[in-house]
Amino acid sequence: MGSNGTRIALLAAAVVAAVALFVVLSSGGDDEPSTTSASTTSTTTQSEPPKEKEPKEKPKPKPEPEVPTVEVKDGQPVGGVQELEFEAGGEIEFNVTSNTDMEFHFHGYDVEQGVSAGGTTTFKMPADIEGVFELEEHDLGTLLAEITVSPN
């Protein structure tokens, strides 16, 4: 294509588009960090609404992070597949209870632990791999929880 005028116009359009896009998207994404950092303590009963910023921080006057628990009844996770979040560099810690004898497999970190009927087992380890990992029942592979470890 031709004249300098056109070139300048196109370059200007590029810059404008970039700035506009960035402003639009970054205003929506600003609070992302606070969402992630607040994660370790989040209770595990519901899949939390991902993008709400304000509500996230207020209902959390609890001083000590309580250890989330995945409750398994008759081989199925109570309340559906649980979502747990931890930060890389910190600790992963959660309990699993079951009313039947069960073996669990925590993928990626590759830890296997079992529990006898009515008992509790605690998974505890340094959060040194980032990603999303599945906690499954060992034999059938029933998905019980998804554990997210995000970079800090």
């Binding site: 896009l21 960035f22 929506g28 994404g29 993928h107 791999i129 999303v132």
Partner: peptide
């Protein structure tokens, strides 16, 4: 045994820009 974390919004914005 591991899935990638989704691309964060800031990086999506940069990529699209």
């Amino acid at each position: 045994g591991k899935q990638d974390l989704p691309i964060p919004e800031w990086l999506f914005a940069w990529g699209a820009s």
